[in-house]
């Protein structure tokens, strides 16, 4: 049968930063071809096709929370595969190889993670799941 693609509306202007991305304008309608968990979605808009940040899109119909997993306050263990320095107040700075707990996997690719007493957003593309169960203390 025909493949029905999900439609989303662009909520803010976005200028592409590579040839694999497309530029979007507020109010544009796009169809989603693929959703990467790292927060980049492959979409088509008119005749253009390319990657765009999921956070610049909202679903045309239906509640947006429906496809997002609930937070898991117990945390899931992941290891950082790349260092990242916080650029905003609500982000965490972490070095490569640090073990952290993922609390909330947000569709925009900026997951909420916990390291000791600190909690903040971190790029999911720099995280690798350890597969270990968290030790209960």
């Amino acid at each position: 049968g025909p493949i029905i693609l999900e439609s989303y509306r662009v909520i803010a202007d976005y200028s592409h930063t590579s040839k694999y991305e497309i530029t979007l304008h507020i109010g544009d309608l796009v169809e989603i071809v693929e959703k990467s968990p790292n927060g980049w979605w492959f979409c088509q808009c008119d005749t253009k096709r390319g990657w765009v940040p999921a956070s610049y899109l909202e679903p045309l119909d239906g509640p947006e929370e429906s496809e997002e997993a609930d937070p898991n306050y117990a945390g899931e263990l992941y290891i950082t595969t790349k260092a990242y320095k916080a650029a905003q107040d609500d982000e965490l700075t972490l070095e490569t190889g640090e073990t952290i707990e993922v609390i909330h996997k947000l569709l925009d690719g900026w997951w909420v993670v916990r390291k000791g007493e600190e909690t903040g957003h971190f790029p999911s593309m720099f995280l690798y799941r350890t597969g270990e169960k968290k030790e209960m203390v």
Binding site: Y14, S36, N38, W40, W51, P53, A54, W110, M125, F126
Partner: peptide
Amino acid sequence: SIKLPPQNPPPRPPAEMRRKRA
């Protein structure tokens, strides 16, 4: 075929979206 997604983190949500979440 689809190219792999960009290897840099996507931009954070625009201000409007963050207000909605808050």
